[in-house]
Simulated scan of single mutants.
Amino acid sequence: MPRKHERKTVAVGTVLDSSAGRRESRISDLSLGGCYVESMTGFQPGEAVSFDLSDQSGGTVGFTGEVAYVLDGFGFGLRFTNLGPEQIAFLERALPEEQYHEQPSY
């Protein structure tokens, strides 16, 4: 199934909070719809996860998501849930403009 939003390659360390506790991880790509989290530990599709991301000015924004798919031993795709104005504004600052504005069709 194709993604709704193109992902941007990033390298961001974060700490994930889930039912299994807190785990250090790294986000390797990001979009308005979700992200890919590198993690060798097991997560299950549908599992709820929360984490904070920091912007270049040092501000921190909390995100929540649901595991969309798992690549065992490598990581998982996370679909954002409950995006509010603060999270959307953060993502719009972090992502190239063409990812969050519809492009005209010619």
Rank of each mutant, 00 (worst) to 15 (best):
V49A: 00
V61E: 06
C35D: 03
M40W: 07
S105D: 12
E86I: 10
E6A: 15
Q87L: 12
V37G: 00
D29K: 08
R22Q: 13
G84S: 13
Q44F: 06
P104A: 15
H101K: 12
E86A: 14
S39A: 12
V67T: 08
E98Q: 09
R23M: 04
A48V: 04
A20L: 10
E98P: 02
Q44W: 05
L83E: 11
G84C: 13
L32Y: 08
H5Y: 15
A94N: 01
V15L: 05
E38W: 04
S18D: 04
N82M: 10
G59N: 13
H101E: 15
Q56H: 03
G65P: 00
T64Y: 07
A20P: 02
A48Y: 02
L71R: 15
G42F: 10
P96V: 12
E24D: 12
E66V: 14
S57A: 14
A20K: 11
K4A: 14
R26P: 05
V49Q: 02
E86C: 07
L32C: 14
V10D: 05
S54D: 02
D17I: 01
S54W: 00
D72M: 08
D72L: 08
V49I: 15
E97F: 10
G42I: 07
E98N: 10
A20S: 10
K8L: 10
G65F: 00
Y106K: 15
F90C: 03
Y106A: 15
A11W: 03
L16S: 00
H5D: 14
D17W: 00
Y36W: 13
R23K: 13
D52V: 03
V61A: 04
Y69G: 04
P104Y: 14
E47S: 11
R93Q: 12
Q87V: 12
